[in-house]
Simulated assay, not measured.
Amino acid sequence: MRAYGRRGWAALAAGVLAAATACSASGAPQPSPVAATVSVTPTPTTAPGVSLSEAANAFSEYILTDDLLRAAGDRRLAREITRDGRTDLANAEYASTRDRPARYAWGAPSFLVPRLRPDEPLWFTVVVPRDGRTAVLTFAKGTDWRLSSLSLLMPGEKLPEMKRDAAGYAETVGLDDKSVQISPRYVAPLHATIAERGPAGIAANLVAPGIYTTETAATIADNRTDAKTDGFRYDSIFTPADFPVYALRTVDGGALVQYSLLRTTSMTNVVFVNPFLPIPPDGRWALARDSYSHDTKIYETQQYVAALPPAAAATVIGYDGAITRANGT
């Protein structure tokens, strides 16, 4: 499943706003308690493309391999067990620590394995404690299983109850599904809109306020004002990434959606009152020099989990992201 492309998404967001308004008017590890409460529906007769045991084995192999690579500082192989936006984030994690990334302690996982046909793109989600927080990981299969997405639930947030059949398999939600207020395809572009423009954005009634939505927009506005005072021009733009979007059905008829955004933050020296541009401390590793006089661009890859009720605003409940590259003159 693919996210909406990078061009023309703002116009599409306007269309989905109208549609949404109309709609609202009418050896496996033991499961964790995190996602233990589920709705059970009859078991379909179709054999799944991914079995529960295959998902458990793939996850176990991943965390063992990942820990060995972190201990060895092997950035090249770390990229080989990831894909999509996770590859850039893995590279950044190693590069920013001089190939000494953090090692993690994992708890007991709970699996959300969709009942997919063997000829469909295959993926599954794992909900698992990691160093005291709940991580939501999704793996996708090409020639082998690789980590595609990872987000950490924010403090105080929890997953909605997930829908499963009698055999324990989860139910997917199509990217253009109209049973929810926002089809999963449009969550990323609407999130991007409100993160840039806040309550003034077209997504104000479709994406709930929060730290990664309206508060981000407020911070951008403040940074723009402060930069102008110092003689700089500042801007920060969000774009839906062309990576897979994953959506699973919740018991209330809504969806749990995983998606990625790309953020580009630029700063230009306009009047040269200050000789050097400010550089974010967590981005210094990605720059070739310690200081720049004319302009800088900072690029981030961000991965999110949003809870999408059938007739209410989407709420961002999980996030992980980092600066993945930067340049300047």
Results as ranks from 00 to 15, higher is better:
residue 241 A to P: 01
residue 218 A to F: 09
residue 313 A to N: 03
residue 97 T to K: 07
residue 180 V to K: 13
residue 267 M to K: 06
residue 260 S to Q: 15
residue 309 P to H: 10
residue 327 N to Q: 14
residue 76 R to E: 09
residue 46 T to R: 15
residue 207 V to N: 07
residue 127 V to Y: 01
residue 276 F to H: 10
residue 214 T to P: 07
residue 257 V to D: 00
residue 97 T to I: 01
residue 14 A to W: 12
residue 38 V to W: 02
residue 260 S to E: 10
residue 299 Y to W: 09
residue 245 V to Q: 02
residue 184 P to E: 01
residue 40 V to I: 14
residue 230 D to P: 03
residue 207 V to R: 12
residue 326 A to F: 12
residue 31 P to D: 03
residue 323 I to G: 03
residue 140 A to L: 10
residue 194 I to P: 07
residue 204 A to Q: 05
residue 258 Q to V: 08
residue 155 P to H: 11
residue 294 H to A: 13
residue 21 T to A: 11
residue 58 A to L: 13
residue 143 T to M: 05
residue 15 G to R: 15
residue 63 I to F: 11
residue 243 F to W: 12
residue 8 G to P: 09
residue 156 G to R: 10
residue 204 A to G: 03
residue 41 T to H: 13
residue 247 A to Q: 06
residue 262 L to R: 15
residue 193 T to L: 13
residue 327 N to M: 13
residue 264 T to C: 00
residue 142 G to K: 14
residue 321 G to C: 08
residue 40 V to P: 00
residue 305 V to W: 03
residue 141 K to E: 05
residue 118 P to H: 10
residue 56 A to C: 07
residue 305 V to E: 01
residue 57 N to V: 13
residue 278 P to K: 15
residue 238 F to K: 01
residue 35 A to M: 11
residue 324 T to M: 04
residue 168 G to Y: 04
residue 269 N to Y: 08
residue 207 V to K: 13
residue 39 S to M: 15
residue 76 R to V: 11
residue 189 P to I: 10
residue 164 R to V: 01
residue 174 G to S: 02
residue 207 V to P: 02
residue 130 R to A: 07
residue 234 Y to D: 00
residue 77 L to G: 00
residue 50 V to M: 02
residue 50 V to G: 03
residue 147 L to Y: 04
residue 152 L to I: 15
residue 159 L to C: 08
residue 61 E to P: 01
residue 241 A to E: 10
residue 88 D to H: 14
residue 244 P to M: 09
residue 239 T to M: 06
residue 111 F to L: 04
residue 47 A to M: 08
residue 289 R to G: 01
residue 182 I to N: 04
residue 283 G to V: 12
residue 235 D to C: 07
residue 269 N to A: 05
residue 27 G to M: 11
residue 5 G to D: 12
residue 171 E to H: 15
residue 216 T to E: 11
residue 174 G to E: 06
residue 81 I to K: 09
residue 299 Y to Q: 08
residue 1 M to E: 03
residue 148 S to H: 09
